[in-house]
Structures are given as C-alpha cells and as structure tokens.
Design a protein around this nucleic acid. Structure first.
Lengths: 332, 332
DNA sequence: GGGCCATGACGACGATTGCCGATGTCGCAC
DNA sequence: GTGCGACATCGGCAATCGTCGTCATGGCCC
C-alpha cells in the first residue's frame, strides 16, 4: 500500500504539504500543489482512513442497529439511511439484533470500540439497561422509540393517528361492525394503532366489543389464523382493520378460502404499506408509514447532533397517510 | 475516552502488560493479570479498534456491495452475511449501488480507503473496469458473477438447472403448450434460467415458439403486463414459467382479472422463493434460490481466502430446488 | 530588521510487539 | 555447603502503523 510518505517523496515535498493539498487546509503554491496531485494519481494513492480516523478522532461511520434486515420494512429503512448517510460522506455498519437484548449489547460494544460517530437504533423492545450503560457515550437516534437521555433524539411515527385514519375511513364507508387483528401487545406500535382506531370509532358512537378483537403476531400465518378466529366469534363484521399488512394479507387469504370476497363481503385495511401491498388481490388499502422520511430524518437529526452535541434532545413525529387501493368498499 | 495508558497507570503496570493480558499474547503473572483486569472493568475500558487496526493492518471489517438492500432477496443475503460475519468477529459495511457503475466505483474507493479486509460483491452487471482497477487489491467474493482474476472467488447459483427443474416439472404434469415470462436479457440469471427450461422441454420433444416468450423486467407490474401480452399472443397455453416470483405474482394478478383461474386453468411456476411466495393465492410453486447458503458460503470463502491469500480462486455453485406449493396442477 | 509567505520537521493519536533487562530458579563443579 | 553460569519468567521501553496540526525555519520584500 502506498502511503502519504511515498507521495511526498515522489513529489519532492514533505508529508505535511501533501496532507494540506489533499485537505485544502492551508495555502500551497499552485505549482507545488499540482506536482503533489500528479504524484497522487501516478501512485494511485488513497489516504488510509484508519490512520486518518485515529488522528482526527472521527470515523465518518454510523452504526445501524436493527432487529432484522430481512424484514422488508427495516430493509427499506436501512436502504434510505445508507443513501442519506453516503451523500454526507458517512458509511453504515449494519447490525441485526433480532431484538435480543444480549445481542444488542454485544453489537453496541463492538460499535463503540469501532468509534462510530453516531448510532441509529431500532430496538424491538425497551432494554433500558443497554441504553443506560452505552447510549449516552455516543450520539444516537432512536427509531419508533423514546428514552429520556441526553444525546438521544427520536424519530417517531404517529401510530395512533394512523389507526385513527383507518377507523375514520371505514366508518366513512358506512361500516359499523368492524373486526380488528392486533399485533403483539408488547410492541409499542400495535397498541397505539389500536388506540387511534378505537377513538375514531368512538367518535362515531361505535363501540368495539372484545370479541371483535383478536391479537396476533404481525406475521402472515398469524393473520390468517386470527381471521379464522374472527370469522368464528364475530361473524357479522363487514370490515377488518389489521394492524399490519402482512396480517392483512393473511386475513385476505383466510377469507378467500372461506368463500368471502374482499371487498364485496368484507373490507380490509392494513398498516405499513409494504411493497407487497400491491401484489395482493385486491390491492391492499393501507396506512403507509413514511419509510423514506424515517430514514432521511434519522440521518439528518444525527448529523445535526454531531454538529451540536449539546443541543437539547429532539423528537420528530412523522404522520402516516392513508393509501386508498381496492380492498375496501362501502357497506352494502 | 479512556486509553490503555490509563489502565496501565491504574493497575501500576506498563501498557505492554495490559495489552498482553487482553490479547493473551504472552504469559502474565496471574496476580498482575487480575489487577489489570480489575482496572479494565473499573475504568470501563474498551480498546480502540481504530488504533488496533492501524497497528495490526486489519480491520475485521468486510464490505458488502449490492444493488439494493430494499430488494428482499438482497436483504436476506445481507442478513445472512452479517450473521455469518459476526460470529467470526467481522463487521459489515453496507453499500447500495443500484447497479450503477459509477456508484460502484465510488463505494469501492471508500471501502478500500477504509481498509476493509475483504469484499463481497453482488454487481448487477459486469463492469469490467471497476473490477480490473480495484478488485485485485482486496480479497473478494462475487455473488452470481464470475471474473478471471486472482484473489476473487465466486458463489454461483445454477440458474440453468433451476430452469430445467421448472421445465421438467411442468412437462411431468402433462403440459405441452407453455408460456414463459423472461427477465432482463442483460442479466446473467434470466437467460440461464430460460436455457435450462428450454432444454427440459426439448428433452420431452416440446418446442417453444417465440410467441410464447415475453421478456420483462423482474418486477410485479412488468409481470402483469407480460402476462396480458402472453394471453393475447399465445391463448392456448396451459402453464407459465415466470423467471422470478415477482413477475409470477404479477402474472397471477393479470390472470385473475381476466377470469382465468390458477392452477385450474393455468399453472404457474416462479423463481427465487421470496418470502411472499406464500402470500399469493394460490401459494406459489417456485424454484428456490438457496439464499441462506449463498450468504454463509460467501463468508466462508472469503474468510478462507483471508487465511490463504494465494490459494487458487474457487467457484462454488449452489443448486436451486423446486418448492411445490399450489399454483400448479396437472393438465386437464 | 520586522513581517510575511511557503514549506518542512516533529510529535501526537492509541494500540501492538520486538527486544532487552531484571529477577528468580536450577544444576553443576569445587 | 557455596559460588557461578545457563536459562526461564516477567515486565518495561520504545519503535511502529499513516495522518494531521503546530511550531519552526529560511527566503524575500519593504
């Protein structure tokens, strides 16, 4: 590997000069600078970032810790974050924790050792210990999660509002007896979605009996099972709100195998707007999470904090929007 | 940040000793070692990987350059690679190139500057220039791509064989007039899949007229359009082989809106076995790529090469397998 | 001679590691 | 029993990795 010293020798100057022409950090005689640049290209020199990082005390690297990159939602977020980081000269280290507290801790240690400049964290549940020990020592942005701490900003999605949107929409179509397929109780998102949904119904004077709510797990198969159960215990429903798209897709499958037609017999609203929401039949009406914004805002917050480490911590909440496709119809 | 010198001072030993107890790199009096360990935990010391990397000349980092992490196939591969790397102490830097040659080159430069120990590259097309300039200088593994070069291994999927499997299967079900929805001509995978498929048909004495082949783009909407076209120009087909699942899903949608039923009227075989292949109705019969193996084998090859840089380059080919679900039926 | 300009020399940054010195142990010869 | 050298054990010093910022220096002009 060629080093800055090689370049200096080749150009007949000192290493300091080479460094300065590369970084435009002090004036160098144009002629000299030209000679240096020539040497750089001649030797195909590229500065060693490791040495640079050691010297400068910054790595231009951000850690991205999320539950599972093979989950399309996180994959999209990761993609956005990587893109946004790259344009600002940052590189992303990807870590998958499966929401496992121990793994999160191990990854965090590695990332800290690697001297990341910042962290973007999408924990799957609240592991206070992890945060308390490690987070304060590096600027961080939490996704869909909050914590009282300096140095930590949050990007939140207004799940409550999303649920409200879904409720308003179904009520507006004339539905009165509505079923719900909920996500995991211990997630932070599902209860909020449910809350907003219930509120919308409440505003229309509609009450949601416990028998019209079935909890599930955010997965396709879980959604199918939940729908079976829902059909059994609340056979008169004309619409369903599934707390995510995957479960909505599973529910549609269950309905189809029972001969129910969507949206003719039952309307279906999902949540997330994953890319595959358009591949179902009928295409799924859903509440879209602003995936793109989540990623870009997270990076922006992080970079701003790097510029001003002592600024008070911020929380940014992003609004989901209703995407109307073909899985809902007015009540007959 | 606390450094090794702080620990040494705190334990009353030299930095060398601290280093040696951390790395078990020479015998240290148990008593002394214990004192050092105590100091380490007392000060919450964690060695600075950047300094270590500079000194050791290795970063325990591998670069992963792929077209698009939001594509579920690559997302899964990335996940597998990250997992496999982590257990061996490697960390992954994620880069999305969109298959854009210029981006690939920029990323490669950054990765080289960051002194990655190895590279896993899933290029979307052959950018010989990129490779020629940069690849030889770092151990690399190519995914689904080959190139004549030292230091470069490949993990390949036998697309030809996958296509063959699909053909054999449909022929075995009694189909004789079969349509094909192809992927991009300039990809390396689609033509190979097609080739294998045609061979299987040939062995059964079946010929594929040009009118039963429609090329598309590996996307859902493209698949739908292609199916429309296929129905128009080859109305008598009883089965379709789509060169990936997304197009198969689009094709099923097109068929449904024309009142054709899958598999009763038309059988459908996809390729890839993306997670969403089970969410269609009917669940999609498809040729599965060994996603998991691709990732783990890529990491293994890379690590083995790191251990033995001068070994002859290797190519590992992985066999796809037929996953029988419900989108195919015997010809009426 | 003071001030300015362009550049060079040099010491961190934090960890690893080859080399050397100090101390302790043991065996052997007298 | 004593003295001495060979050898093993343990720990410290200092060089090193490649880059960058600070201080120093030499030349030049007014």
């Amino acid at each position: 590997m060629t080093t800055i010293a090689d370049v200096a020798r080749h150009a007949g100057v000192s290493v300091a000069t080479v460094s300065h022409v590369m970084n435009h950090t002090r004036h160098v005689e144009p002629e000299t600078a030209e000679r240096v640049r020539a040497a750089i290209t001649a030797l195909r020199y590229s500065p060693n970032s490791v040495a640079r990082s050691l010297r400068r005390g910054e790595t231009k690297t951000i850690g991205l810790l999320l539950p599972d990159n093979s989950n399309p939602f996180f994959a999209s977020v990761a993609r956005q974050i990587e893109d946004a980081g790259f344009v600002s000269g940052y590189t992303v280290i990807l870590c998958n924790s499966d929401g496992n507290a121990e793994k999160e801790e191990r990854y965090l240690s590695v990332l800290m050792a690697k001297q990341i400049d910042g962290l973007i964290f999408a924990g799957s549940s609240d592991h206070a210990r992890v945060f308390a020990r490690l987070l304060p020592s590096v600027p961080a942005v939490l996704l869909d999660r909050e914590i009282q701490s300096v140095n930590v900003d949050s990007v939140l999605v207004d799940h409550d509002h999303g649920g409200y949107l879904a409720g308003k929409y179904l009520v507006g179509l004339g539905h009165r007896t509505i079923g719900v397929i909920g996500g995991p109780r211990d997630s932070s998102s599902s209860p909020a979605r449910l809350r907003g949904f219930v509120r919308a119904l409440g505003e229309a004077g509609i009450e949601l009996p416990p028998s019209s709510i079935v909890d599930s797990d955010y997965h396709f198969a879980g959604g199918r099972l939940a729908m079976e159960q829902l059909m059994a215990q609340a056979p008169d429903i004309t619409a369903v709100f599934a707390c995510n798209d995957l479960m909505a897709m599973g529910a549609i499958t269950a309905l189809r195998s029972h001969g129910s037609r969507v949206p003719d017999d039952i309307s279906m609203v999902g949540f997330d707007d994953i890319p595959y929401a358009v591949t179902t039949w009928p295409p799924l009406t859903t509440i879209a999470q602003p995936v793109e914004k989540i990623g870009t805002r997270a990076v922006s917050l992080l970079l701003e904090r790097l510029g001003e480490p002592e600024a008070p911590s911020r929380r940014e909440v992003l609004a989901p929007v209703l995407i109307e496709r073909e899985s809902c119809a007015a009540r007959r």
